[in-house]
């Protein structure tokens, strides 16, 4: 590829500039800017209603932005899709009827300029065992494997996956990510949406954190994890002053709920030791991983009044 005429285009990757999209009165995406370099694996992380699917739809040319622009390797989404540079797995969708799994994957492969070998893809996605079955006789997990196979067989430069593991059991999830790892090694650009922090952290080079149609953080996975991966300590502790609790090492905020206090922590281990040292009477202690939702609410507190979408 070096020195080919579209080399500079290739270097551009995926550019989302000033994107906005509303559905009726609901602003799904409210002005986002992201540049993704070729070869990067990027997670769009966010709770339901963050605007991840809408962003992905615009990236794939399925939805037209109200404002802003998308380019994929220097092309419009429609051109990129039309030239077979893009493969995608949408969040919802069933398989075409009256075909076997193998036939369906073969048909989709035939639409692309450089498809992978169908047998290899069936093997990699764990669909080999039921390749001869009709698409209508599959379990939810099997269907999801086939949908993944359809995206992979395209052998695209950009692979876009919208919550790919949402319907998968643990084993299928593991197979999925091991297949994804080998894809990423081939130098493909991968963008996937998820609402699991662990997934984003484990498989993405970079996390774009979205909430309520905006990007609230964008950076290396470790950095984002530190930002949203906090824990809370809950303990029954009548009479303790919140200010004093707030001063404990590793605690970022405190709240009283009746007899109990809730401490939000960046480092719950240290905070717990400090708490027990200072207040030996604390009881009913619980340490909880703060849900993503909670972390998001904290990060986007100023937008609380607005209605989330999807």
């Amino acid at each position: 590829m070096t020195g080919s005429p579209d080399d500079s285009m290739q270097r551009e990757g995926v550019v989302l500039a000033g994107l906005r999209k509303s559905y009726g009165p609901v602003e799904a995406v409210r002005g986002i800017d992201v540049t993704i370099s070729p070869g990067e694996t990027v997670a769009l992380l966010g709770p339901n209603g963050a605007g991840k699917s809408t962003t992905i739809d615009m990236m794939l040319g399925l939805a037209r932005p109200d404002a802003g622009k998308v380019t994929v390797f220097g092309l419009s989404p429609a051109e990129a899709v039309g030239s077979g540079k893009v493969g995608g797995m949408l969040q919802t969708g069933s398989l075409l009827e009256y075909l076997s799994v193998r036939e369906l994957v073969e048909v989709v492969a035939s639409l692309y300029p450089n498809p992978l070998i169908v047998g290899d893809v069936l093997e990699a996605t764990g669909a080999q065992g039921f390749a001869a079955q009709r698409t209508t006789n599959l379990s939810g997990g099997q269907t999801q494997r086939v949908r993944f196979a359809l995206a992979l067989v395209a052998n695209p430069d950009l692979l876009v996956l919208d919550e790919p593991t949402a319907a998968l059991d643990v084993e299928a999830r593991r197979d999925f990510w091991s297949a994804m790892r080998s894809i990423a090694k081939l130098g493909k650009t991968v963008v996937f949406a998820t609402h699991y922090l662990e997934e984003a952290d484990a498989y993405a080079d970079r996390i774009v954190l979205m909430a309520r149609g905006r990007i609230i953080a964008d950076g290396p996975a470790t950095e984002i994890k530190a930002k949203v991966g906090g824990r809370t300590i809950r303990a029954t502790l009548p009479g303790a002053s919140l200010d004093a609790l707030d001063a404990l090492v590793g605690v970022t905020s405190t709240e009283r709920r009746g007899e109990a206090v809730v401490l939000t922590c960046t480092d719950s281990d240290t905070a717990l030791r400090a708490l027990l040292a200072a207040y030996p009477a604390a009881r009913d202690i619980e340490v909880l991983g703060a849900g993503l939702e909670e972390a998001f609410l904290r990060l986007v507190g100023e937008d609380n009044a607005e209605v989330p979408y999807r």
């Binding site: 040319g61 399925l62 077979g84 969708g93």
Partner: peptide, 18 residues
């Protein structure tokens, strides 16, 4: 109509099929 309901037409729209 069936293919639209299945979401298959959307899937096809992200392939190079004209």
């Amino acid at each position: 109509a069936t293919e639209r309901q299945l979401g298959w037409t959307r899937q096809l729209r992200i392939t190079p099929l004209r």
